[in-house]
């Protein structure tokens, strides 16, 4: 069954359908959250919140307006970004990064993930962007920085960053093709 169909059943309280939906989306949700947060324990916590939120809020999903998978990943991304920003604000991040230095196995995992084909495709397409387009898009999406922070980090005017983000996403679409 498709995620869209499953989510509709979940909205009606179907726990079996939720289990199946979990099988389909837990990997993409967890992987995305971990890409943004990097810390495995914290990623697991946020992924858990997101997956539970799917159960709780399934009735809000409107299949006429887009696919369930985009909807779910957009939610996961937003929750991950919200968390990474509050962690940064609290200065926890430096501490965690120091701690992460003791877990070389995790970097190895990331490398293996990078061997994946879809990842390869996305990376190839990211490589075709200009450096500024690529940095603007990835600092925001994968590292959770606001466009103001991106502008600061890259020493660019705000308007330039907004344009680079838009051009970057458009070029990515041309390169990856329309099939999601």
């Amino acid at each position: 069954m498709e995620a869209d169909e499953l989510l509709t059943l979940v909205a009606g309280g179907d726990q079996k359908a939720f289990e199946e939906l979990y099988g389909l989306v837990s990997g993409p949700v967890y992987g995305l959250v971990r890409r943004v947060l990097r810390d495995p324990a914290q990623s697991e916590e946020v992924a858990q919140e997101v997956l539970l939120e799917l159960w709780r809020s399934a009735a809000r999903f409107d299949p006429r307006r887009g696919s369930a998978l985009s909807w779910i990943l957009t939610l996961a991304h937003r929750r991950a970004v919200d968390r990474v920003r509050s962690a940064r604000a609290a200065g926890e991040r430096e501490q965690r990064e120091a701690r992460r230095a003791h877990h070389p196995a995790f970097d190895q995992v990331l490398e293996e993930v990078e061997a994946g084909l879809e990842r390869e495709r996305v990376r190839r397409c990211l490589d075709r962007l200009t450096a500024l387009q690529r940095q603007s898009v990835t600092l925001a999406y994968y590292d959770g920085y606001t466009y103001r922070e991106v502008a600061e980090r890259l020493s660019l005017p705000l308007g330039t960053v907004k344009t680079r983000m838009r051009d970057g996403l458009n070029r990515l679409r041309d390169c990856l093709g329309g099939v999601a």
Binding site: P28, Y30, Q48, V113, R123, L169, A180
Partner: peptide, 22 residues
């Protein structure tokens, strides 16, 4: 939709314990 394409490439299996808890 373009941004979601960036998400797909990051898929990784979730820990088994997460499934039990959820």
């Amino acid at each position: 939709e373009d941004a979601v394409r960036l998400a797909w490439s990051t898929a990784a299996p979730a820990p088994a314990a997460l499934r039990d808890r959820v």
